[in-house]
Nucleic acid binder design. Structure first.
Lengths: 199, 199
DNA sequence: CCGCATTTATGAGCAGGCTCATTTTCTGGC
DNA sequence: GCCAGAAAATGAGCCTGCTCATAAATGCGG
């Protein structure tokens, strides 16, 4: 039973490795699920015992990156809310970087609030996690609990930054930094004027 | 030649009509291109002589709605920038309303800045148009020309509102109005503090 | 060791978006 | 009318994500 469990997780790992490699080499669309299965030395059907969807494979790669980003973020001390949010997103972008070329299709479906309508046990756990962290960072700095509208606005801005980053053609994606900076400044400024003011 | 041209545009119109009807009745995914072709009394292949993609059909429906929205918007006089932008987006939402149930898949690909990377002669004409109008509205009210970052931020907020609206479950989508209001207030406030201040 | 149950792997096959070689329809000059 | 060339229509068929009936593999009580 243990041997089998190990083999199973080894297969899963192998799928993720070969998929990442193929996606990086040929892009998301040009990599077929059959390609991945062959490279991982399993049957096509078996692939779908491990991941319910082609997109779920990229999703798993992204989740792993987000976990690493969270660890990185926890080490950073930031004064203002702007700085803390900036650092949070930067940590994620650093981890996403190797996957930048093929992660776009995932971002579209995963960042969109359109995805939120589906049942809550799906992959929007990462969104909930992220928003909880943002809320905690705001509370630590004496902003009240963030309203649903505030969270929605934050998420929109966050999604906008990631989407921009995915296609940012400036040499080192420095344009994304500028956008992120302005986005977080805008959000924090709005929070202070529109919310604290009425507290 | 003229007769033919008329017949061609009649076919196009017929495709759009039956597609809208089928999408409304069964949703975007459940409606196949074969269904549309049968309902329009043409062959599957012919459908793709008129629209290069299934999504392009929804795109054409959306474009028509946007044209009507623009007409509606031109009639509205608004004082502040917030009010003008609010009115602009409201006009679009009113026109999109009949298509709300099936328009979501289109929004994902069309609103995302991810789409901007492709060549500029594609469907992002509507984005350029919209942003030019926003820029004009801002100029009329003595904001300077909007910077690329400002336009990017605006577009992100706009996309966030539309995406929210598409899945808004409040009875009359009144939650969308609140979000739109806050979004535009945030944007206009940021414009004033961050940009005019340094002029 | 041996059935037996449960879990996992397999690949033929389906569905649906889209293509393209072929056929049909149209047009303009004689 | 009639014919050549252009434009449009056609539907068989390709590709690819995904499913599902079937077959192996594994674990376990006796």
């Amino acid at each position: 039973m243990r041997v089998t469990a190990e083999k199973k997780s080894a297969t899963r790992k192998r799928i993720l490795e070969v998929a990442a490699e193929l996606f990086r080499a040929h892009g998301y669309d040009a990599t077929t699920t059959r390609d991945i299965a062959v490279a991982a030395e399993i049957a096509t059907g078996t692939l779908f015992n491990y991941f319910s969807t082609k997109e779920a494979i990229v999703g798993a790669l992204a989740d792993a990156a987000l976990v690493r980003a969270r660890v990185e973020q926890a080490k950073i001390g930031a004064e203002s809310l702007e700085e803390a949010l900036f650092a949070l997103v930067m940590a994620e972008l650093r981890q996403f970087k190797p996957h930048r070329k093929y992660i776009a299709p995932l971002l579209e479906t995963r960042l969109s609030p359109l995805a939120e309508s589906v049942d809550p046990n799906t992959g929007d756990a990462s969104r909930v996690d992220h928003l909880e962290l943002v809320d905690a960072l705001a509370r630590e700095r004496n902003f009240g609990e963030l309203s649903p509208v505030a969270l929605q606005l934050y998420w929109t801005l966050y999604a906008g930054v990631l989407a921009f980053w995915a296609v940012d053609k400036s040499p080192k994606q420095e344009d994304t930094l500028a956008l992120l900076d302005e986005s977080m400044a805008m959000f924090a400024g709005w929070l202070r004027s529109d919310h604290r003011g009425s507290n």
